[in-house]
Design a protein around this nucleic acid. Sequence first.
DNA 1: TTTCATATTGGGAACGTTCCCAAAAGAATT
DNA 2: AATTCTTTTGGGAACGTTCCCAATATGAAA
Lengths: 342, 342
Amino acid sequence: MKDTKISILEVARLAGVSKSTVSRVISDRGGSVSPKTLERVNRAIEQLGYRRNSIAAGLRTRKSYMVLVMIPDVANPFWSEIAKAIQDQLELAGYSVVLGSTYWSEERESRYYELARMSRFDGVILNSVTDNIERIKNLGVPAVLIGERTAAQNIDTVGTDTMQAARVGLEYLYSLGHRKIALATSEHGSERYLSLRARAHRESLHEKALPFDPELVFSVTLNEEGGRTLVHEFLTMHDWRGRADGLLCGNDILAITAINEFRKFGVIPGIDLSIVGMDDIPAASQTYPPLTTVRKPKERIGRIAAELLLRRMQGIFGAPEKHLFSAELIIRDSVRDKRKTT
Amino acid sequence: MKDTKISILEVARLAGVSKSTVSRVISDRGGSVSPKTLERVNRAIEQLGYRRNSIAAGLRTRKSYMVLVMIPDVANPFWSEIAKAIQDQLELAGYSVVLGSTYWSEERESRYYELARMSRFDGVILNSVTDNIERIKNLGVPAVLIGERTAAQNIDTVGTDTMQAARVGLEYLYSLGHRKIALATSEHGSERYLSLRARAHRESLHEKALPFDPELVFSVTLNEEGGRTLVHEFLTMHDWRGRADGLLCGNDILAITAINEFRKFGVIPGIDLSIVGMDDIPAASQTYPPLTTVRKPKERIGRIAAELLLRRMQGIFGAPEKHLFSAELIIRDSVRDKRKTT
DNA sequence: TTTCATATTGGGAACGTTCCCAAAAGAATT
DNA sequence: AATTCTTTTGGGAACGTTCCCAATATGAAA
């Protein structure tokens, strides 16, 4: 009932030319064809409803024009915005983007690695839960890593300067008079994030000659559940009002959840406790009060990663590149100006 | 420097067997191989770092074990949850899921159609912006449509009963004493949504013998921008306080944005105006006040769609199936009980 | 031991393209 | 008209698998 396998040969026969000529017509690699035959071949294609089998073509050319973008959570706007930027850029160059969401599961991640290894994609852009550098190099195709990965020496990476981003938030809190600043971040995935943010936290305190209270460092996963855990732990901390006046969250999901949770328990964010997020996802401007956060250049990260991969796929190799962007403070309303007398 | 094309033949040579035998080992289709040779072949594979070229295999078998899931917006939790359910189900059956986000762009949609047509995927699950049935049938592979599509006669569809969902929300508002209920929905994509929800709205009013005020039907896109537009239009409506006491939104993104926007303008959601959303995305429980909404069975939709596609891909054809689920009211705090005296 | 059934192996022919190179056909130059 | 150059065409040979079928080895039954 359906199209029974019409290949290049059937087209060639109908058009009265050779398969090579048909191939020249359908593959845009500019083999010269006379206008007359071009017309004839196109008519035959139309008539037979022929469709090119790109699997077969890919077998011969070793190109699929497909790129795998593997990220932890497609439902997190931070990631989906990066993915969108990548997609925009790659499609301009004729590549199709395929999204893989690992949902932080190593098993899923392995699946996608397997998929990529099987010569299906021309390149991969990824943020790996498990930082298995060997596995990435083993893909056999160009790969660009997203995120700050100091360990990944020989791989192209594009990311934000995590420490700088954390410091921007901390400095702001300090500048408005906060002196007891808590930190909520994750141990999920690479431990480096924790240490980087934690390090920024500690260094900041040290510079200002402020005391370091280890209980003010909360380690939770960077999702809504983590946000609830955070608030629970925070509020059960002994004398928290005396101990903390500010809170820097590892991402906006955490911060937004925290804002809502705190309010449920009668703690008014931005009054009783100042909160600063990280990433600047769209929802950050929709909270009550709107969230002050540190914006990461998501669009830029995606675009640069795509450009870099594009170059690698064109065979332009060279020393691995490391792109590290700095983050920018977005002032909204979740931080109180403690210098003002109330 | 890298793996220079090691094929099945190199493995066969090293193991001292024929390529057929190696093929039997790597493709799990259970051709019998003696334990001894199995062992030898596996060692050779290991030793050479051989990796199966699934493009070549796919050319021969006409199977790719990849499924394309094409949805409008991967960043909307409603869609990403459905996608996740599909993924879970299909992976169980050995398929890999590839996500395509069209971001409501017809051009992107066309791209994905093209991709799917090129014999790269074994099946497609999609929610199409443009409801081009012909195009879907032309894919040449099994396809399952997500959403209520009465027009799509010959295609398998899985979705929620839009009218019933709308009615659930409306009935609830009515039962708590609301008599002037506004509706915010979209003209985006298929007009059917508008008419279905609008129809439910009108029918509901009619049943209760309530007057129909055409100005209480707002047509906006189902995203944050639409939410802001909605609130603006709503508040500039003449004598809105006298004219409306409830608002049913076409999806939660709209409702959540509206909640926040209303508050900005001093209108307290759940007190001054009751708001009901639709979908029940996670963020709905995080608003202030938490959003009363109508839950669609996202996980179920995804799972059933996947199971259906799976059956089709196994060659089990038959009459097109139409699965329509009903939605369930989730009561939170954005609707006021007007029967109580205040 | 012979005979038969069964399990295991190997060799070519697909699958549908593109690539390479040579041949043919035109166009331009002498 | 002969020569050279350029454009257009065609015919195998890949690409790396799986499939089909025949051939061989193995084991059980007679």
